[in-house]
Design a protein around this nucleic acid. Structure first.
Lengths: 213, 213
DNA sequence: CCGGCAGTCAACCCTTCGGTTGATGCCGCA
DNA sequence: TGCGGCATCAACCGAAGGGTTGACTGCCGG
């Protein structure tokens, strides 16, 4: 490890005022933490991340309908020398976790984490090591163990639309495909999930957190 | 109104330590509030609600897989002279809102509420008047305007099984019906939801919170 | 007392979906 | 360099689902 920082500079990004206040309350008691700002939107997180040179950004994934936390994460981590990003969210679906990690997040925590676990994860992230909640880590292990359960990008895209209630014809139009291709994807999806209909595929994928909602 | 209370005694129930800390931080700044306890489970909320004679219980709806907030609400409000229950949750689905109100909740707030709105709602609840978040109020108005959107008990039961991926044949066996009856129910469901397929019915019902998961 | 609604079922027809076979092009990895 | 996975499409067939009409029961409320 390099020269030990005396303090970890934190930026909090969450659209819930109560959660921001809670994070402040929990993290300010740690003597080696300094909270430089808290913001209610992903856009402001991106803007402040470079200006106030934080060491770690604690970021939610869902910001009331606007820019996603994963996008903001990607923008922040794209800049060299920028802060680490630690995702702090309620959801632990495969899609969310993978998107965040692909976006360059250093860690992924769930909001039910106890304070000391939170503080430990922040220090881990500040040191550049990755911090995963136990549940999240388990999920990733599962995925590595059974690669068959992993749907391809295109398959996930198709299944997501099916879950929204679109027919094969509607999906094919939306994705500029032929119906034959959509059916082909679905057959592969059924095989991977071990089901035999679109509704059960949606149910299985939702249960496993492969798709959203 | 009776003799005006000098202070409002509060009990916080939420499984997220961060949220509990945030609520403390936000509500403790109000001079007329006193937080008598905060608990991480619905069971403890029920137990403490009678013992520490709070005026208002701020209660989450989702407690990591165990007892639901709505059950706890029902138990607390069943006792005469008990505290008011104010629901504070992330979700605003029809099913959740109705369950909470049927359980006797005095108000329903969303976690993205700003602190002053939160404090105002607590005072409203303490005075015995109902406090609803704007989004929640809108949803209830919608439901009253279009009673057709309400599925019957049996229809909900059928749709729930469909959402779990069962075929018409499987549903009919599970509910001891003929397939004709299941199809008949589905036709009515489609009409009420304004859709034309089982998958879109599931999507619409999930979006409106008419079924679980 | 009767109308209306929920719930049940049958017979019918047609569309969509599910399953197969087979084929093409692309890309990455061995 | 070739194998295999991903993605694309076509044609076909049987089965499941969707839509209609019609009919019977039981219950609630005007």
């Amino acid at each position: 490890m390099t020269a030990p920082d005396t303090r970890v500079r934190l930026l909090l990004a969450d659209d819930h005022p109560v959660v921001r206040a809670g994070l402040r309350a929990v993290l300010e008691t740690e003597p080696d933490f300094e909270i430089v700002a808290d913001v209610p939107t992903a856009e402001e997180a991106v803007r402040l991340a470079e200006r106030c040179d934080a060491d770690v950004v604690l970021m939610d994934l869902q910001f009331g309908g606007r820019m996603l936390g994963s996008q903001a994460t990607a923008e922040i981590t794209a800049r060299p020398g920028g802060p680490r990003v630690l995702i702090l969210t309620t959801y632990d679906t495969d899609a969310d976790i993978l998107a965040a990690i692909e976006a360059g997040a250093t860690g992924y925590l769930l909001k039910d984490a106890p304070p000391q676990e939170l503080a430990a994860a922040v220090r881990t992230a500040a040191a550049g090591r990755s911090a995963l909640a136990p549940t999240v880590a388990l999920r990733l292990m599962d995925r590595l163990r059974t690669p068959a359960s992993a749907l391809s990008r295109r398959e996930t895209e198709v299944l997501q639309l099916v879950a929204e209630g679109l027919s094969n014809a509607a999906v094919s139009k939306r994705l500029f495909l032929s119906q034959a291709t959509v059916k082909s994807h679905l057959v592969h999806i059924y095989a991977k999930l071990g089901v035999d209909s679109r509704t059960s595929a949606v149910a299985a994928a939702t249960a496993q957190g492969l798709i959203r909602r």
